[in-house]
């Protein structure tokens, strides 16, 4: 899937600071339709903030975030000044984008089915019967239809994350953002979530994934972006980036990772 047409996500020199702390120092990045982009980097490198700026869960300070050609979060007022758009406009501009969170963020007072039906009934304004059919279909896709009537707290982390993915899928997104989707999971549960994500990638979903799963990045990503200190330090196809890293920071990041996994690779 090589760079055909316009990028569906385009970041131009995006910056963000929290108080004195400059978290993003000018990020420019293109993501094309159908591409899987993995963002890797140490903690505090700004990778989650970057993702949250795309979905405007975090406002950015300067630069541009363009999704499907639309500037996200800001518009010109009649005087020509840039102002923050009302929430509903931002949400409409981001209608094709959904986020999957590290902590799943399922609603504990609703059953699995109700969680997945909520966007259909409340946002798409589907009637209940139709919404239920649709919700069961997406739950089936992530292998969770059999737990439709369970409450989230009774499920394992991996199951909860699959339900969260189903809830996101119910909106029929074109772009999915994953914010460390497996970091809160016990090691033995990571696989089932990655498997679902792999299926989505195979179906041609545009995905931006912040992750520590180097194996997933190596096998599934079209492009890997290495973030350090709020800047893109290096990016490229996983094959070249993992085997022939150029920047010293990436070399040491990968070395640390390899060291941690030394038992597996000898």
């Amino acid at each position: 899937m090589q760079n055909v047409g316009k990028p569906v996500i385009k970041l131009i020199n995006v910056t963000k600071r929290f108080g004195d702390n400059s978290v993003l120092k000018g990020i420019s990045l293109d993501v094309h339709a159908g591409e899987v982009v993995c963002i890797i980097g140490g903690s505090g490198s700004g990778k989650s903030t970057l993702l949250r700026c795309v979905d405007f869960l975090e406002s950015y300070d300067s630069g541009e975030v363009l999704v499907e050609g639309r500037l996200i979060g800001y518009g010109s007022d009649p005087a020509g000044n840039l102002t923050r758009l009302p929430d509903w406009v931002i949400q409409k501009d981001l209608a094709n984008v959904v986020m999957v969170f590290q902590q799943f963020n399922l609603w504990p007072h609703k059953t699995v089915l109700e969680n997945v039906m909520a966007p259909l009934v409340l946002v798409t304004r589907m009637n209940k019967t139709e919404a239920k059919t649709k919700a069961l279909a997406v739950l089936d896709k992530v292998g969770m239809a059999h737990k439709a009537d369970a409450y989230p707290n009774t499920l394992s982390g991996g199951q909860q994350q699959r339900v969260a993915i189903a809830r996101a899928l119910a909106r029929e997104p074109k772009i999915m953002l994953f914010d460390e989707p497996t970091s809160a999971l016990d090691p033995e549960l990571v696989g089932e979530v990655l498997k679902v994500m792999r299926t989505l990638a195979d179906d041609g979903m545009t995905m931006v994934v912040v992750t520590h799963e180097m194996g997933f990045a190596a096998q599934v990503a079209d492009k890997v972006v290495f973030l350090a200190n709020g800047m893109i330090e290096e990016q490229g196809a996983p094959a070249t980036l993992f085997t022939a890293p150029q920047s010293p920071l990436l070399k040491s990041f990968l070395a640390t990772w390899a060291e941690r996994n030394v038992g597996f690779f000898g």
């Binding site: 959904v98 609603w107 966007p119 809830r167």
Partner: peptide
């Protein structure tokens, strides 16, 4: 209430 609860709602398009 964890703010992720609200964020998830905002993200899938629920209004305030």
């Amino acid at each position: 209430l964890p703010c992720g609860q609200t964020e998830a709602g905002w993200d899938i398009g629920l209004d305030r």
